[in-house]
Design a protein around this nucleic acid. Structure first.
Lengths: 208, 208
DNA sequence: ATTTCCGTCACATTAATATGTGAAGACCGC
DNA sequence: GCGGTCTTCACATATTAATGTGACGGAAAT
């Protein structure tokens, strides 16, 4: 039996979902439904549900902020965001806050039940387009890297491990001056003027 | 009609999948099956399939490397990794290389067909545990950050934008020496000894 | 009311980085 | 062969960062 709680300011949706869950009362038990984050934050820690379906656009505290505050109290809680919004920031903010799933509200009731089952089974239910967004966020742009020579990439790689010039020199068995020379060229190619900026650009563009 | 190509060194698996695809010849057409990356790299660019099912552990060039070389030639190609391995590095390397999906080989034929449909529909089919891995990779550990004071976080934030001490001082309207003081405390708390390391630790642990 | 922590600033020293110039050997392509 | 690029090293200098010590006011805590 999976204990489920709902957080959504739309009364119709709350009641609709509760009915759907009752129709599958052999699997699910809806132990709470709340219209705002404040109430949810008060009640959910006691109720200890297994899964929370969380809207994002709530009056007052947002669903993401609610999730952030909930997670430390209930680390094993699986939260699925259930919302109309699917823009980059909202999705990634949710995942960073600890959401385990992300379903858009146009999903059918059966899809939502599947998502609850899936998240309890250790999965991460997401609407197709959301999943693609998440996956493609890993893909490297991979443009500026072509400009760097192999040796320069090695040096940059070392810098990106937090090493100093001297340590890089030792690691690559070259002199301090040579390291400096490579770094100077790296700066020119990446259009930066410090190790920090070079590391940042590297991380952001996933050059290495 | 979805044009599919297979890359896997296991003959039985290749033939098995080809049979499954033929059983659904109204939807799918298997236009190629290759036992190694080298052959795949030669043939696939001409065949222009819609979807490639790619094994990772191939003789010679790996499936990930094959994917990397394939993507620039066929940017619209959807590649689904189909493999037994599911460790962190392999999964994330695949996604960074441009994979749109990741299925473990214990998946049923029907699941695999679903994955092909899903990926063509703009989704990102993943086995449950893989999806969870990907999603949780966004979650901030958020432990060490608590130690930092508000001001220290502001300073660190500035450093993470590539600014120098002087620029941070200007931005926060404090003196160079005060910036140094904060940074020294940040170093102590993060257990690092340079701006580079501090930035790296911040990025990795998503402290800010 | 006193301690503790935070944020602010100052002076001083050593280490590391940024920037410039020059040059030699290796390798590749034309 | 010759010109280009890559890698290597050297000398010089100005700027920045790292580390230490010390101090003052305010805010929160007890």
């Amino acid at each position: 039996m999976i204990k489920v709680a709902l957080v959504d300011d739309n009364v119709d949706l709350r009641e609709g979902l509760q009915i759907v869950l009752k129709e599958h009362s052999d699997e699910f038990e809806c132990i709470g439904a709340f219209g705002d984050a404040e109430t949810a934050l008060k009640k959910i820690p006691e109720l200890k549900p297994d899964v929370v379906l969380m809207d994002i656009n709530l009056p007052g505290i947002s669903g993401i902020e609610c999730l952030k505050q909930l997670k430390p109290k209930l680390p094993n809680l699986d939260v699925i965001m259930l919302t109309v919004f699917a823009d980059d920031d909202t999705v990634f903010d949710s995942l960073c806050a600890g959401a385990c799933g992300y379903i858009t509200k146009n999903a059918s009731p059966e899809k939502i039940l599947d998502a609850i089952r899936e998240v309890r089974d250790g999965g991460a239910p997401m609407s197709g387009r959301i999943a693609r967004m998440v996956v493609t966020s890993f893909k490297a742009p991979g443009d500026a890297s072509a400009q760097l020579t192999d040796r320069e990439k090695e040096v940059l790689d070392q810098l990106c491990k937090g090493k100093s010039y001297k340590m890089v020199a030792d690691a690559l068995n070259i002199t301090h001056d040579t390291v400096r020379h490579h770094i100077k060229n790296i700066y020119k190619k990446l259009e930066v003027h410090s190790v920090s900026e070079a590391i940042l650009k590297t991380m952001k563009k996933k050059i290495i």
